[in-house]
Amino acid sequence: MQLNTPSSPHIHSGDQLSQLMQRVLWALLPAITLYVVFFGWGIIVNILIAVLAALTFEAIALRLRKRPLGSNLGDFSAVLTAVLLALALPPLAPWWLLVVAVFFAIVFAKHLYGGLGFNPFNPAMIGYVVVLISFPREVTTWLPPEAISGESISFVGALSATLTGTLANGINPDAISMATPLDHLKTQLTQNHVISEIIHDNTIFGQLAGSGWEWINLAFLVGGCWLIYKKVIHWHIPVAMLASLALIAGVFWLIDSERYASPLFHLLSGGAMLGAFFIATDPVTASTTNRGRILFGIGIGILVYIIRSWGGYPEGVAFAVLLMNMLAPTLDYYTQPRVFGRGRNS
């Protein structure tokens, strides 16, 4: 009788890595849908280009590292990185911007460190920060919601804008692009305007935060809650991050509501929700103990507020996440849970 003798346990729950990644992708769907509703088809073109580039770079990197392609491409991790990057970059961004970002994310941030599971920094955020620093104009050129610009962007139009630089009808996207609400607020504040005045003057601000943005952020929140319910992510990081962001924003807002935006504005602007539920929770680069996760989240929340309020960039989620990534191993070491039967300190 030829017998197989692996180590115990001999049974398995059947959970799979690719399934985990797919669930995260599903959770992004509501926000992507709203994105299309408010900002047109640009985001879909972004996603397509990014995914295509990610799979290509992943395949090349795997081939060079002599790893089998099938299973590693099939784990959806590269796809997820690409989709997150596409969501972080402006729709109608030139195609090469996406490709460069994806290249750094997949090749530099992931494979040069040893592939999935070995990267100390969040690959999507590395890719984003590289293009943000290298091509600040392209990365900060966002379209306003269609309702404001009056320009509805079709799939063909978006594709044409991404590939050639002009929309299908010949309009240059630059002509209709505007600063994001966070960016706008920041520039205006530095010119000594007060918040009530800034918001009143500009249609880009909606009921809660940025027009359109607020709903997309709420959609990220919904998707994130579903992930927590499905136990794909733990609640600690998003809750800690959003709570600390809201708290610190609240304190300053109460001190001077004309110079500091409201907590709600901070929570529903920029990449707060996307960052809290989908980026900071990347398990590879985040802290893995429960107490560590809470500290990790708090750190991000505080850094986001600091960068948004006093830093050189209007949005700070990417930098905050990368900075906290550096701290994660240390956090893990010092926040080990109390082991069964042992005291806290033994």
Partner: peptide, 13 residues
Amino acid sequence: KWPYPIHTLEARK
């Protein structure tokens, strides 16, 4: 001594 697990970071080839 238990052997070091023989598996590679790869799946179905």
